[in-house]
Write a protein that binds this DNA or RNA. Structure first.
Lengths: 190, 190
DNA sequence: ACCATAGGAGAACGATGGTTCTCGATATGC
DNA sequence: GCATATCGAGAACCATCGTTCTCCTATGGT
């Protein structure tokens, strides 16, 4: 028997791979079981319903996604360069072979109208991303509205990359961010 | 008995209202029947499978959406104002009570991984939208890459408005477009 | 060694949904 | 007026899926 922690990790790994790749409604609990190797009984002990598993999947992905982004961007020497590095990170992400767009936009489109929980998690994810960008913008000494523009460009790049299948939108968005940043005439001292 | 044309229109009206509002997989053929008032037999004569109906729904919506947008934006006195008016039109759309984001992004997230037809229609819709913007950009005498930036901002505004429930992203995107346009130093003569 | 408990495999159950079929009514052509 | 084709209403059929149950095995404490 697997330890509870390992079983939970395997279930979430399977859920993430399958839900993200094919959509939530097209993946049955039986496939989560066969992919994770965790029996249905244990699966339902960990998550009393498929909806609970979906929420756990989205929450874990939210944290991991934002942590990976921050690890990459925060390594830059200045907030301005971190802001631009966000789009390099997006480019790398778009280039991953299993990239299928934003898990939160996808699940919102699939279930947002009928599942308030999924809708709330998607909103929270986007808010957190936007806050992260806003912190970088503030640290760079740029006006707050710049964060809105950067967020829209990132959002647009993600969905365009998903549908077109090309990572190119990341570069275009980065160019647009540079123009926005130049328009403010550089950082304003605090 | 309804005329074939009227039956088809009622079916597509029902399909559009239901599919867009709740997602494709959560709407059954029986609900299309009761909403449209067209019997199952006739429904399956018009569309041999649910997939065919989904494709017809998406194609009709693509054309209507782009026609409505063009009618609004093309009424402006100059290409530059048409370009900016796109975002006024988006704002009005976001404010409609039944706005639920982009039908093509939603259906792509729901079925794009398993339905090549749905994926192709979503791609074609985004390409056509991008071409429309590119024509306006060219007519305005702006460099071609401006169209990429404008498209990313529009895309980002649509998904952000859908998830946040606010029409505000349309105004932010419009402001960003103005900055992009100013950065080129105005139209370049042909 | 024995028993109680937990675990796994898979059947079973109930609901839903896509698609087809039955059947009675209605309209159409001669 | 009648035969024939068509249509609508809804049952029926079959597959899928979320969830629970059965039954058998193995294990761990005493």
């Amino acid at each position: 028997m697997l330890s509870p922690e390992l079983a939970e990790a395997r279930v979430l790994d399977a859920a993430e791979a399958l839900f993200y790749d094919r959509g939530i409604q097209l993946v049955g609990m039986d496939e989560i079981r066969s992919t994770s190797g965790v029996s249905l009984k244990r699966l339902y002990q960990l998550y009393p319903s498929k909806g609970d598993l979906v929420e756990a999947y989205l929450r874990r992905r939210d944290e991991a996604w934002r942590r990976r982004l921050a690890e990459y961007a925060d390594a830059r020497p200045s907030p301005r360069e971190s802001l631009l590095a966000v789009f390099d990170w997006l480019h790398d992400w778009f280039d991953e072979p299993d990239f299928r767009g934003c898990a939160f936009i996808n699940s919102f489109g699939e279930l947002g109208a009928t599942s308030p929980e999924v809708a709330a998690i998607a909103r929270a994810h986007k808010d957190a991303f936007r806050r992260y960008l806003a912190d970088l913008v503030a640290a760079a000494g740029e006006p707050a509205w710049v964060a809105d523009h950067v967020a829209l460009l990132a959002e647009g790049a993600i969905t365009t990359a998903a549908i077109s299948g090309s990572p190119q939108p990341a570069r275009q968005a980065k160019d647009a961010v540079r123009i926005i940043l130049e328009s403010t005439g550089g950082p304003r001292p605090a």
